[in-house]
């Protein structure tokens, strides 16, 4: 999959009055177009209700579009999703939860599936949790298992919906590093939804600022990893994102204004 192209997407949700009678439609995405770069981490940032989670759900196949085209058409079947909450089955062990991700892989033997599960757990530093239940894991560990579950699908598009939002600051930083390590070892096209300016500036190769169902700023981030949040360049980048967020409603359906930078050419 070279590139992912979303063209002229429209999505409305019905609006109801107090008597549950539909009174109209609430537009969430309006003439939305986007091209995702291969093997890059694209961060989608925006205020609550701006349509970023709806967009992610559309890409994951959890929600349909009213109009528009997605290329490739079977994108949802090639994607892996990590949600804000781990969504592990509480009655199943870590192993069973992960094996569930491989259930559709009829081409693999049970032993091969088990080996993959053990490998993924190893890469996430969770070998000892194989027989644990989700309730026995910390929030960070459970979220790492959820990450492993998505990895087992070997996705061509990795969709992450504020995956670290519920974690404490230290665990969140660990998870961000883990994600970057995984991305370096297996570069996968990634769409990462977040509210967090720090997180966006630390991990993104490209930042899309979204407002009212449209992209109002598209910023390319050409900075090496690891990045440090106190770094001047990063602070300038965060100011840029914040300004885009505060400017609000876009003037055009899609403002393609990539602001490229590197360490020699800071955001000032």
């Amino acid at each position: 999959m070279d590139v992912i192209r979303l063209t002229n997407l429209y999505k409305n949700f019905p609006r109801f009055d107090q008597g549950a009678v539909q009174t109209g439609n609430h537009p969430v995405l309006t003439n939305f177009s986007l091209t995702l770069d291969r093997s890059k981490i694209t961060v989608l940032i925006g205020r609550s209700g701006c349509g970023k989670t709806t967009l992610l759900h559309i890409l994951a196949g959890l929600c349909s579009v009213d109009r528009g085209s997605i290329d490739p058409v079977d994108l949802s079947r090639r994607s892996g999703v990590v949600f804000q909450d781990h969504r592990l089955l509480p009655w199943a062990t870590v192993e069973a939860n992960l094996m569930l991700a491989l259930h559709v892989r009829k081409d693999l033997s049970k032993q091969a599936k088990r080996d993959r599960v053990i490998n993924v757990l190893g890469s996430l530093g969770l070998e000892k949790t194989l027989n644990s239940f989700p309730a026995e894991l910390s929030g960070g560990m459970a979220q790492r298992v959820a990450l492993g579950r998505a990895l087992l699908l070997e996705p061509e598009l990795f969709l992450l919906d504020e995956p670290f939002a519920a974690l404490d600051a230290i665990t969140r930083a660990e998870m961000q590093n883990l994600l970057l390590d995984l991305h370096i070892s297996t570069p996968t096209t990634t769409l990462f939804v977040t509210h967090d300016l720090d997180e966006a500036s630390l991990i993104a190769d490209r930042i899309l600022v979204m407002d009212q169902g449209r992209i109002c700023s598209d910023i390319a981030v050409d900075l090496p990893h690891p990045r440090h949040s106190q770094d001047g360049t990063l602070r300038a980048l965060k100011d840029r994102i914040e300004a885009a967020l505060n400017n609000g409603t876009p003037k055009a359906p899609f403002i393609d204004t990539p602001l490229r930078s590197n360490q020699e050419q800071p955001y000032v």
Binding site: A60, S79, F83, R149, L153
Partner: peptide, 10 residues
């Protein structure tokens, strides 16, 4: 939410 997760696992 678990059903959504199951859908993403195809």
């Amino acid at each position: 939410r678990l059903l959504e997760m199951a859908k993403t696992l195809r």
